[in-house]
């Protein structure tokens, strides 16, 4: 198991990632390697834990937006007043937290996924989003949980018309990510209000039994209170 809580010293290797926390010169040295890229930090504290968690995919290569745009490879048609559950993949980032006496701090965030950004909406009032493309599944798909997680998305067509859905946009600061040995996941809802308008939100529940909740980055960074849902007002 890669994600979890560790007491230093520690050494973990999985796929192209290596994480090591070792005692050096009366301090601890944090070392991380990923595809040839290296990062090192000294930790000047003795009694601490290392938490390795999947987190919101907003931080690499640079945090410029809180929004996540998932484009469906094939568009969906949902019938009037229909409620349907689907599964889509989302990119994950891996965060290493340090926890001392009560306080939690992020010391490293990295990702194995290729990043891409897009604009949702028009140039004047749209929002920049992290972009990802996913197939749509009716069952939980197999994923490499170092790269991708699974979102259970409940589509609720509140209109009396057929609606075509090609994408979903979330405020990823609101993501409630859970993980276990095999899966990283979260649960979300998309309330379709019209052919071009929907509201997306996350539900704070695990997708499967025995899943642990990831530490939320926006809590550890003490970001100001943000709305609990995102309104997709520039098309579905």
């Amino acid at each position: 198991m890669f994600f979890g809580i560790y007491k230093p010293p520690l050494e973990i290797k999985k796929e192209n990632i290596s994480i090591k926390v070792e005692k050096k010169d009366k301090a601890f040295l944090y070392k991380r390697g990923k595809n040839g890229e290296r990062r090192e930090k000294f930790i000047l504290f003795d009694d601490f834990e290392i938490h390795i968690n999947p987190v919101e995919p907003l931080n690499t290569p640079q945090e410029i937006s809180p929004y996540l745009f998932i484009n469906f490879s094939k568009s969906l048609l949902i019938g009037p007043k229909k409620r349907e559950k689907i599964y889509i993949k989302f990119p994950i980032e891996i965060a290493v937290f340090i926890k001392g006496k009560g306080d939690v701090e992020v010391i490293d965030i990295f990702s194995l996924i290729k990043n891409k950004f897009t604009l949702y909406g028009d140039i004047r009032s749209g929002v920049v989003c992290k972009y990802y493309e996913s197939e749509v599944y009716k069952e939980v798909p197999d994923v490499n949980n170092l790269l991708e997680g699974v979102i259970e998305l409940t589509l609720q067509n509140q209109t009396k018309e057929w609606v075509e859905v090609n994408k979903v946009v979330f405020n990823a600061y609101l993501m409630k990510i859970y993980y276990n040995e095999n899966l990283v996941s979260c649960i979300s809802k998309m309330a379709i209000k019209s052919k071009v308008l929907a509201e997306t939100s996350f539900v704070d529940k695990p997708l499967q039994k025995n899943m642990k909740k990831s530490l939320e980055l926006f809590v550890s960074r003490r970001l100001p209170i943000i709305p609990s849902e995102f309104t997709m007002e520039w098309g579905l």
């Binding site: 604009l119 949702y120 920049v128």
Partner: peptide, 10 residues
């Protein structure tokens, strides 16, 4: 396409 910040849309 390889550059993350070169937007997909526009």
């Amino acid at each position: 396409e390889e550059n993350p910040f070169a937007l997909k849309n526009p």
